[in-house]
Computed example of a mutant assay.
Amino acid sequence: MKLTEDIKPVTYMKTRAAELLREVKRSRRPVVITQHGEAQAVVLDVATYEALRDATLLLKITAQGEADIQGGRTVSQAEAFARVRRRLANKE
């Protein structure tokens, strides 16, 4: 993050919104929006936001899996496949 470029006051966003959006899209770097000298929001391009969201979801799923392992809530691969086969057979 380049402090002189990546932190902007809310007035900048108000007066130069289109320019700000073009720069965020071009650079793919987040811009921190400040109000009264304090950070209030972050502007991201859509691709970066989606990548962050996907990474966060993957970490959440991984943490849930680790918690299941620690809690003993697992079954063998053979049992998992057997359960799926039974469910599929019941739907036919």
Score class of each variant (00 low, 15 high):
87 R>A: 06
36 H>W: 08
24 V>I: 05
41 A>R: 04
69 I>P: 02
40 Q>L: 06
51 A>R: 15
58 L>W: 04
50 E>A: 11
27 S>H: 03
51 A>S: 11
33 I>L: 05
16 R>S: 10
73 R>N: 14
77 Q>G: 14
74 T>P: 04
58 L>Y: 02
68 D>K: 15
2 K>V: 10
89 A>N: 06
6 D>A: 08
49 Y>H: 13
3 L>I: 10
32 V>P: 10
28 R>N: 13
46 V>H: 09
21 L>R: 03
41 A>T: 02
61 I>K: 13
52 L>P: 02
13 M>F: 03
14 K>Q: 07
63 A>V: 14
69 I>L: 11
49 Y>P: 02
51 A>H: 06
58 L>K: 14
78 A>Y: 01
43 V>N: 01
56 T>K: 15
67 A>T: 11
39 A>V: 00
26 R>G: 08
5 E>V: 02
14 K>G: 02
11 T>G: 00
30 P>E: 07
24 V>G: 02
14 K>D: 04
67 A>H: 12
26 R>A: 12
22 R>P: 05
15 T>L: 09
64 Q>L: 12
34 T>E: 03
20 L>G: 04
16 R>A: 10
41 A>H: 02
66 E>N: 14
71 G>H: 06
24 V>W: 01
16 R>I: 01
33 I>W: 02
36 H>M: 08
40 Q>K: 15
60 K>D: 13
77 Q>C: 11
9 P>L: 03
15 T>I: 01
27 S>G: 06
72 G>T: 00
5 E>M: 10
2 K>T: 12
